[in-house]
Every structure is written in C-alpha cells, then in structure tokens.
Simulated scan of single mutants.
Amino acid sequence: MIVTIDGPAGAGKSSAAHRLADRLGYRFLDTGAMYRAITYAGLQHGIDLTDEKALLQVALASEIQLAGDKIVLDEVDITNAIRTFEITTLTRHAADNRAVREHLTQLQRQFAAESKQTGQGIVTEGRDQATVVFPDAECKIYLTASEQARAQRRYEDLLNRGEQVDYTGVLEKQRHRDQQDLNRKVGGLALTNESIEVSTDDMTPDQVVDALEKIVRDRQPS
C-alpha cells in the first residue's frame, strides 16, 4: 500500500510521515530530503545551481540512500547538513529543474517497487506525491497548517539546530517558497480530489499521527 502525504512547507509532513510509517510497519520515503541532497551536492561540487545541465549531471552522479533516520550521499551522512536555512532556501533550484525532478521521480518509484517486492507498504511525503509520482496511491493525505504555525515550527527547529535566524525572516522565506511551490510548472503543490485534508493547527504531534493512522487503517484492505 502506498500512502502519500503532501502539503506546504512547515506543515510537519516529514516527522508525521516518519512516525506514521513506524506505527504501520511501512518504509518511509522522504522526498524532500532527496531534493535537499542534490542541492547540497551541487554546492559541494561548486557549481552554479541555476545551471540546469550541471545540476542534472550532479544528480545523475550522486548516490542517495535513505537509511532509516539518516540521509546518506555518496556514503557520507548528510542528515543534519541538509536541514540548514541555506539549503532550505536554495533547494528550489533542484525542485524547479525538470530533468532533476524526472530523475528523482524514477528513484522514488523504484523505492516503492522494491518495497512492494518485500511486501512492505510505504509512506511518502512531499509536494507532488499524490499528483505526479504516485497518482494511483491507495491513500492520499494533504497535511496543512496556517502560515503562522508553520513558520513558528520552522523557526523553533532552526533555533534548536543552533542557527541564528529571526521569525520574520523565516516567515517571509516561507511565503516566497509557498508561491514557488504553488506556481511550479512541474510537480507543483496541489490538492487532488482523492486527497483527505488534515489541518495540524492546535494539534499535538501525537494527535496528528493518531489522525493519520486512522485514515490509513480505514483504507487498508481487509
């Protein structure tokens, strides 16, 4: 079974999807981390991220492994390195690169195919999972929250990571990113007719996962 969780930045998709996968005994596919990893790789190679062909070559040459809680790029653990404010801001270059998106889409589908072979379901999160990558997914969820709540979560997360940021700057960057995600020509953020919308405002992390688990279990084959 494939469970997709799409939604805007800061809605809590990654943490909720990861915990949901653990509860269900499914594999977790963090697609956002894949785009961050390519962005990080581009910076490490010193390329101009606006050079679409150069960034694609970096993507094709990179080996990304999703190992539990860890993101490994070419055998190096970059889990924390890709969660910085800089990477978050620059990831749009990988996300807007049509060829990079096509490459990562194939890797995501390969991940699902391998999981199916082992009899495991997957929980995957991102922006285009229900619309582009897995349009036939059995369960589609759209996780959202108010822009203030999303910005506050991101702000607190960055502070906890030791970054020097201010709430206003985080909010403005988020608004800009929201517009980019909604207006992206390929893989833009969208709510499908089959998606179940869940707002996480005023919900604890446990309550969010409880709600998602109920949605999934109601749709699991008997």
Rank of each mutant, 00 (worst) to 15 (best):
V132G: 06
P135C: 12
D136N: 13
A137V: 02
E138H: 12
E138I: 01
E138P: 04
C139F: 02
K140M: 07
I141F: 07
I141H: 12
L143T: 03
L143D: 05
L143R: 01
L143S: 05
A145G: 06
S146A: 12
E147I: 15
E147W: 04
Q148R: 15
R150G: 03
A151D: 10
A151P: 07
A151Y: 05
A151H: 05
R154G: 07
Y155K: 07
L158C: 08
L158V: 06
N160I: 00
N160M: 06
R161A: 14
R161G: 12
G162R: 06
Q164F: 00
V165A: 07
V165N: 06
V165H: 04
V165C: 11
Y167P: 00
Y167F: 12
Y167C: 02
Y167T: 00
T168V: 13
V170Y: 04
V170W: 04
L171Y: 15
L171H: 13
K173P: 00
Q174I: 14
Q174S: 13
R175L: 13
H176G: 13
R177I: 10
R177N: 12
D178G: 07
D178Y: 08
Q179A: 10
Q179H: 12
Q180C: 01
D181S: 02
L182C: 02
L182D: 00
L182G: 04
N183C: 03
R184T: 07
R184L: 09
K185E: 13
K185H: 08
K185G: 00
K185L: 11
V186S: 07
G187T: 05
G187R: 08
G188M: 08
L191K: 15
L191H: 09
N193T: 12
S195T: 11
S195E: 14
I196K: 13
I196F: 10
I196L: 15
E197W: 00
V198W: 02
V198Q: 09
S199M: 11
S199K: 06
T200I: 08
D201L: 13
M203W: 00
M203F: 01
M203I: 00
P205Y: 00
Q207F: 02
V209C: 12
V209I: 04
L212E: 01
L212I: 02
E213M: 11
K214I: 12
I215D: 03
V216W: 08
